[in-house]
Simulated scan of single mutants.
Amino acid sequence: MSSKRTILIADDEVNLCKILEAELRNVGYQVTVAYDGTQAVDKSKETDFDLIILDVRMPMMDGLSALREIRKYRKDTPIIIMTAYENHDTMASALSMGATACVIKPLDLDGLAALVKATLDEGSSQESVDWSASVRTVFFNKNQPVLLEIHDGEYAGQYHSRIEDKDDHTLSVVCPANEDGYILLSPGTPVSVGLAGEDAFYSFETTVLAQRENYLPLIVLGKPAVIYRVQRRKHTRVSAKIPVEMSVIDESSDNGQETGPVLRVNTENIGAGGFKIITSEQLPKGAVVSIKASGIPGIGEFSGTGRIIRAQKVTVNSHDDWEYGVQFTKV
């Protein structure tokens, strides 16, 4: 008999099941797949799985109904509910019915594997597992910057854009642009999308579904079920409004004199490696800046220098601003 831990995955998206099955098999689990709620209930009666993963929306029987049925005879089996719908009532209902955890698509595969491991290592007690550390679901937020990559054709290249709107199955992003204006991509055009999460950079492949007009021209992209972590941040950042004073330093001077006015702004996030700010002031990418900050919990005040390693134009509340990533060089 195999000593591998056994997992049942139930989802009507065949491709997603294949991806999850391959990911979990790759890290050492024995995986069984069901494609609707009724199959999930039947298979869980036949086999006492170590862990079950159920999607909410499935044919024949939905995930919550399957959860209710399975709990009648599998009282202690850890069950993870996954859904593409950001509905807190659904998640609250699932937890009250005995789900061990809930995750929202798109799934970060590394995070899901970590959640599975933590659940199996700690058992089914929700109090014993730090869910926030075990899985980090990527949410698509309005105005979130994204990098669009078009692989073929006249407009092949990378373009900065941002998310304007979303629903359960699609993302609407501002059309990419070049020096001639907006690029209107035809439906069916394949696109790679990159974006930054709190602790890593992610990417996914999708296609253009449609074009639509808002106050800006938009393209509608298919929303992915999974998203791939391509680079982990060296230092985790947290969302925090920390007052910062910055001035550009003249690197050509012997004593590193500050040039220009002092910029006073609050950080958007901050970590051991640097911080992000959004301001109406335009600063040169690559510039070295002096930094003074105060009010950091556990630290108080600090001063040092940093370098602007990322600069891009963003729209916040209908205003054009600049977003900068600043990396500490000396603190």
Score class of each variant (00 low, 15 high):
8 L>N: 08
10 A>W: 03
10 A>E: 03
17 C>K: 01
20 L>R: 07
22 A>G: 10
26 N>M: 02
27 V>Q: 03
28 G>V: 10
31 V>H: 09
42 D>S: 10
48 D>G: 01
52 I>Q: 02
58 M>I: 01
58 M>W: 07
65 S>T: 09
68 R>E: 15
68 R>Y: 10
70 I>E: 09
74 R>H: 00
76 D>F: 05
77 T>N: 01
83 T>F: 09
83 T>S: 15
86 E>D: 15
93 S>W: 00
101 A>V: 08
102 C>Y: 07
103 V>R: 05
107 L>D: 03
109 L>K: 04
110 D>P: 00
117 K>R: 15
118 A>N: 13
119 T>S: 14
121 D>Y: 03
123 G>P: 00
130 D>N: 15
131 W>Q: 06
136 R>G: 13
138 V>C: 04
141 N>W: 07
146 V>S: 08
150 I>A: 06
151 H>K: 15
155 Y>A: 07
157 G>D: 09
161 S>Q: 11
162 R>Y: 15
162 R>V: 03
163 I>L: 12
165 D>M: 11
168 D>E: 15
169 H>S: 14
169 H>G: 05
170 T>L: 09
188 G>T: 05
189 T>I: 06
192 S>E: 13
193 V>G: 06
201 F>N: 13
203 S>F: 05
204 F>W: 03
209 L>N: 02
210 A>Q: 06
214 N>Q: 14
215 Y>M: 11
217 P>F: 13
220 V>K: 08
227 I>Q: 01
228 Y>L: 06
230 V>N: 12
234 K>W: 00
238 V>Y: 05
248 V>E: 11
248 V>T: 05
252 S>M: 10
252 S>Q: 12
252 S>F: 13
260 G>E: 04
263 L>H: 11
264 R>C: 08
268 E>S: 12
270 I>H: 03
275 F>S: 02
277 I>Q: 11
278 I>G: 01
283 L>Q: 11
286 G>R: 07
287 A>I: 00
291 I>F: 02
292 K>N: 13
293 A>S: 15
296 I>N: 04
298 G>E: 02
298 G>W: 00
298 G>A: 05
303 S>C: 08
306 G>V: 03
306 G>M: 05
309 I>L: 04
312 Q>P: 01
314 V>R: 03
314 V>M: 10
314 V>W: 12
321 D>Y: 10
322 W>G: 00
324 Y>E: 10
326 V>E: 09
326 V>M: 08
331 V>N: 04
331 V>E: 03
331 V>W: 14
